[in-house]
Amino acid sequence: MGVTEDLADALARDAIAAAERLGDDEVISEVSEALGASSTTTQEAFMTSVRVRLAEQRARRLLEERLRQGPSA
């Protein structure tokens, strides 16, 4: 990745962790707005990283649940 994507991805990881710790998903939106005020390119990269990471988390939870359920009959 380029520097923009690398920085945006690192910030996305931190924002997701902060949102989970605080129990407030609005943190992600606030960070996105702050980025958008100075760099829409970075904001877009940040939001892409957030969406990808959250989708991956949901998919992993689904996979873990299916594995807990065991084989289908």
Rank of each mutant, 00 (worst) to 15 (best):
G2S: 14
V3E: 07
V3T: 11
T4E: 06
T4P: 02
E5D: 13
E5V: 04
E5T: 09
E5C: 05
L7F: 05
L7Q: 06
D9Y: 02
A10Q: 05
L11I: 11
A12Q: 02
R13M: 08
R13L: 15
D14E: 14
D14Q: 09
A15R: 01
I16D: 00
I16L: 01
A17V: 02
A17G: 09
E20F: 12
E20P: 13
R21P: 00
R21D: 04
R21A: 15
L22C: 12
L22Q: 13
D24S: 10
D25E: 15
D25R: 10
E26F: 15
V27W: 03
V27M: 09
I28G: 10
S29A: 09
E30V: 12
E30F: 12
E30M: 07
V31C: 03
V31T: 08
V31E: 12
V31N: 02
S32Y: 09
S32A: 13
S32I: 05
E33M: 11
E33K: 04
E33P: 01
A34S: 14
A34D: 15
L35M: 07
L35T: 02
G36E: 14
G36S: 07
A37T: 14
S38E: 14
S38P: 00
S38W: 08
S39F: 03
E44N: 12
A45P: 08
F46L: 11
M47K: 10
T48E: 08
S49K: 04
S49D: 01
V50K: 00
R51Y: 11
L54G: 09
L54N: 04
A55C: 03
E56G: 00
A59K: 00
A59Q: 06
R60V: 08
R61N: 04
L62E: 07
L62H: 07
L62D: 03
L63F: 06
L63I: 06
L63G: 09
E64C: 06
E65F: 08
R66E: 13
R66D: 12
R66I: 13
L67T: 05
L67R: 13
R68W: 13
Q69P: 00
Q69Y: 05
G70Y: 11
G70W: 15
G70T: 14
P71K: 01
P71I: 02
S72P: 14
A73K: 06
